[in-house]
Nucleic acid binder design. Sequence first.
DNA 1: GTCATACATCCATATTTATCTATCTAAGCG
DNA 2: CGCTTAGATAGATAAATATGGATGTATGAC
Lengths: 117, 117
Amino acid sequence: MTVDLELAPKVKRPPEESCCEPLVFPDIAPDEALRTARVAKALGDPVRLQLVDVLREHAGKVCVCELVALFDLSQPTVSHHLKVLREAGIVGSDRVGLWAYYHVIPGALEELSQWLS
Amino acid sequence: MTVDLELAPKVKRPPEESCCEPLVFPDIAPDEALRTARVAKALGDPVRLQLVDVLREHAGKVCVCELVALFDLSQPTVSHHLKVLREAGIVGSDRVGLWAYYHVIPGALEELSQWLS
DNA sequence: GTCATACATCCATATTTATCTATCTAAGCG
DNA sequence: CGCTTAGATAGATAAATATGGATGTATGAC
């Protein structure tokens, strides 16, 4: 994940005759694009999308062992997907004894959701 | 992108004593999860997100040369990103003479948007 | 016809990612 | 203390991805 958005300087425009509307720029701010894309990227895997789907309904009530049982994947792989979601700021976890309970962080999906609307 | 969702058979449950709510499943259907994740994945890059952002406002009015000028990226790289968006069913293109005009396909973001709400 | 232009495709490369096995850590139990 | 169990981490590997240079393919101008 590059932090540089690679946006060209806004002054640099092609001097050619217009083939289309000139001076077009994204409406979204570069840093918002970065944050929104990061969330979308984390959701861009069917396993992770389903994990979030489960956690939205059963926040704080489902331990990881239950999440692992949902998929035909190894425990470390599910743990990896949870880590990706954690690093994207989408989920958080609480440890209670031996078990870890994950939840969707409130508002974590808000920016993406807003942008889509 | 694996087509197999790796969902475990729903009958297989851990026989151990309950550490959490048993019999939890995603609310989302596996095929919908696959489609939604595919769209999210395509949006999971700041360049592509900004491309879609521009096309939402200037659909059919911006040629690729203008899109290339927006970023500090080569033309083949922008073309690659547009292809990813095309293959995800998010954008379409029309050629007019030498130029190609892209647009966001109506409803392409609907399923993801709905799921997020 | 030749030439230039806009865009796509091909090819190579460096980086990232998904997955597993093996291992580690922390907590609970005896 | 040792043993077990839940979960995270480490390491390895195969696959996917981002990027750019070179090339191909139309189209339009001449």
